[in-house]
Nucleic acid binder design. Structure first.
Lengths: 105, 105
DNA sequence: ACAATATTTGGCTAATATACCAAATATAAT
DNA sequence: ATTATATTTGGTATATTAGCCAAATATTGT
């Protein structure tokens, strides 16, 4: 593969990899309703503060979210909301799989 | 998080994780133009037969591709082509990042 | 300056993913 | 039946990721 094509796929993979975790997908969903501070995530899920913070860093590094410091808190928000539209397609994959399972059963 | 919500995000992550590799994104792109056998991929990229085969298995297990045996060859095809529409959004993330880099420079 | 709260960072271990090689399997051609 | 071609599978070394804890940092309130 030519080098520039390789780079395109590598940068795309970087972003998709950042999404490829259940907790991070949940965070992305939550951010659809507006910005949230780290503590709001920690309160609502069974995970360590540091774990959430690191997940948010992954999303930040991928350019999916952005943050702003407000006093003691750090507020994260979705930078590119179109990310969410993709979930429709992901659900289509899941449904197409479960249909097959139905057939087998 | 409630259990059923957890399951939703886990199954979504499984699919997205399957996409999260440059070679697999390239394969998905290639399959847009119609089904291809394994050897066609191997010919066009600098990788081992077994490596490509395993990438295809990952996509297959996620329900993104399907295959059909035709003689000695195995032809793979996209099962849910909407996957590709997502790339527009991924590119938007990349562009929004590069804009920031431009600003800094 | 000190204590309390919110968040990030560093370090560690366990789990997972990747790439390559060699060997196995399947199909077609001789 | 043997050979050649296409693909998958198993094994293994290496790299990456996840999650937890403890410690560090930042900000606010006293």
């Amino acid at each position: 593969m030519e080098n520039h094509k390789k780079e395109i796929y590598e940068s795309r993979a970087k972003i998709i990899k950042a999404m490829a975790h259940p907790t991070r997908l949940w965070i992305i969903d939550e951010l659809y309703y507006g910005e949230k501070c780290v503590c709001e995530f920690v309160d609502r899920i069974d995970a360590d503060f540091s774990t959430i913070s690191k997940h948010l860093l992954v999303l930040k590094n991928a350019g999916i979210v952005d943050f702003e410091k407000k006093g003691k808190q750090v507020y994260y928000r979705l930078k590119v909301p179109c990310i969410l539209q993709f979930m429709g397609c992901v659900e289509a994959v899941i449904k197409s799989e479960s249909k097959i399972i139905q057939k087998i059963i």
